[in-house]
Design a binder for these strands. Structure first.
Lengths: 215, 215, 215, 215
DNA sequence: GATGAATGAGGATTCATTCAT
DNA sequence: TATGAATGAATCCTCATTCAT
């Protein structure tokens, strides 16, 4: 389990407390970086005592897997919502379909940027904390994408669908996330396209890749 | 200037010390994160006293712009080395050319990963420290790329070369850097392709994008 | 409020700790200057950890307003104790009355010299920390003195009682405090009179001033 | 000698350096407290190297006796300038004479406040550094004052001229110095009279004291 | 269980002083 | 002799974590 360091919260009160803490954490993450949030900060925002935090979480790091879980849950919900039905895929224009999908994904990522930023940064700083779960999330996404490619395989140039599915998610994710998380105030690689226009560009890149025949 | 907080080192001895410090920093960055390196750590590794660090650098943060400069310098050197001559561009197969370029870039990024990792993370944590210089680096890269596209414009589908140049670097950079910096032990988006094969995939993605005509 | 930087101490334990810290501070001030007392010094003397000091006080400077408050409290108590009743003032010999008062004041100042020394020095070094409260203390003292002069106005030469009250406290305070705080080992202006004899001299000076008619 | 820790400056160059340092110190004292002036600060202001300071002065403390000497010299000059001739004393109105004297003294003290402030504070913080010389200065002042009282003894009420001389300087000095050094921004005992008016008040106080007969 | 006071190791930074050049 | 780079002890302060109440 990802949250192996979170103490089990069985009682109603405990669960409430845990929820209060996660809400507080999310609120604080909109303002500042995870590392800049002290445990007293968190306790104050949640309206509980410091000791209570430690009754629920072995230590500060134990919050990170929970954050990751939050991301996973919301992410799964989004995938479900955004999933296109098989018949739609068959009938639609592929390039347009990709654009629609990418716009939805980008919009979602931007809304959840505060969570994702923490997950990203901490995931890189303390990989061991969320490594396995991240891989699982990835696998699920991959499977969904692989199924999608199966539906459109006659309309694309790539023949190795596994590899294509992998690269396609990889490229879309890195591009969208980088822009959503860091492009505004960070150094980041500056790109003038914004919002839907940016999402469309990324969709086109994916489309171009899928269209490609063997070297 | 990026290193406005580094105190000027005029004497031979100072320069030596500064070099020792930068070397020590680079060595430590291969082991741990910038934030995990304490000033005493750094001083010990460099074989100097704590105060000496502060004689050369206004504070710990002042090391970051220097790190960035290090990256800039090496990066410029790499670009120069890897640059293809106009006649080569004209004669070569575009897809192959992109692969060669991408392989070189990826290889370079992997070698310098420890520096780039610090620059990336710190650039996101303290954007004001390297913001402007990063933009300059980006501009230079963009200009080079724009010139390259000019040479091959008859062989690609994109008509807005400015936008294409931007997207192409953006996508290549985010993809290569993500993989080089975080894919090994980090959560990262897992991709099975490794090394040159991975670089080739990215090159293909760029190639596909360039080949694309209007929607 | 003068102690705006002292964190509120609500629990019994906190109050005890704060008391321990103030006691330790007072003890150390008998030995050395405020600036020579380090936070670890203070913590050790109080028998608490360094962090505990910072839980009660935002920083080292925040102790100064508390010291000032200590002085204010003791000072107020002293004024109350030493206050003469209206009927006593009317019946007593003015010169003798002033001497009695000055002796009491001088004795008190000498007993509290360690506190007053810190307040004085720090008040001059960091005026903003106690400026307003000092002025209030001064105003109170002035008011009391003004009332006293009102009772004896028929027996003195000065006609501007406000000015006279001001000068009288001023001169008495600077003289007594200088002697009490610095005369023993400091450079100070050496005066051979000691103890009550010194206080009597100052009382006489005040008496002479009050007796004076217009120029 | 007060400056026993200042290394002898025999050569022309050394003397020049020492002068540069003292000038720099005086300049810096107009801006900030002695303790807030670091040796590098001082060296920079004087335009010499840090090491050079230590060639002239055993340590930072060794500057204080020199500062004191500066004060002594200027003070002696002032006393000489302000001294009244015997015949003037005899003929003049005593109260008026005291006022004139006090105005001159106060004006001088205010001009030299930056030096005197340092001497005062440091004299209290490190008494051993200037103790003896201060006593000598005091003795001289006392002798001058005693001679003055001798000239006017028929016009005053005090019979113990030694004691009167002592108290008179003491009271005048503490009052004038306190006001000149700390009254403006410090906590200090607030007195509304300013400049000459304040000096006149102090003169009156002295006059009143001198006029006083036995208790 | 909850509370929040107390802990103390650890970090950044300063600056008087030394000493190699 | 002058220089200024180097030294390192000392200081303030933080904050994750513990534990008495």
């Amino acid at each position: 389990m990802s949250n192996s360091f979170a103490r089990p919260a069985t009682q109603t009160r405990s669960i409430k407390t845990q929820q209060k803490l996660m809400d507080a954490l999310e609120a604080l993450l909109r303002e500042k970086d995870f590392d800049a949030i002290s445990v007293p900060d968190l306790a104050a925002e949640a309206g509980v005592a410091v000791g209570t935090v430690y009754r629920r979480f072995e230590n500060k790091e134990a919050l990170i897997p929970l954050l990751f879980e939050l991301w996973t849950t919301r992410s799964a919900l989004q995938m479900e919502t955004a999933a296109v039905k098989a018949e739609e895929v068959t009938s639609a224009d592929l390039r347009q379909l990709l654009r629609t999908q990418m716009r939805a994904a980008y919009s979602f990522i931007r809304e959840q940027a505060h969570i994702l930023r923490a997950v990203h940064l901490q995931g890189r700083l303390r990989p061991q904390l969320i490594g396995e779960d991240w891989k699982q999330l990835w696998k699920d996404a991959l499977a969904g994408n692989r199924a999608f490619l199966e539906l459109v395989k006659d309309r694309i140039g790539q023949s190795d669908l596994d590899r294509a599915a992998e690269m396609m998610i990889y490229i879309a994710n890195t591009a969208l996330v980088e822009k959503a998380l860091f492009n505004e105030d960070g150094p980041g690689y500056v790109v003038s396209a914004e919002g839907d226009a940016f999402a469309d560009e990324i969709a086109d890149i994916v489309y171009g890749y899928l269209s490609l025949g063997p070297a």
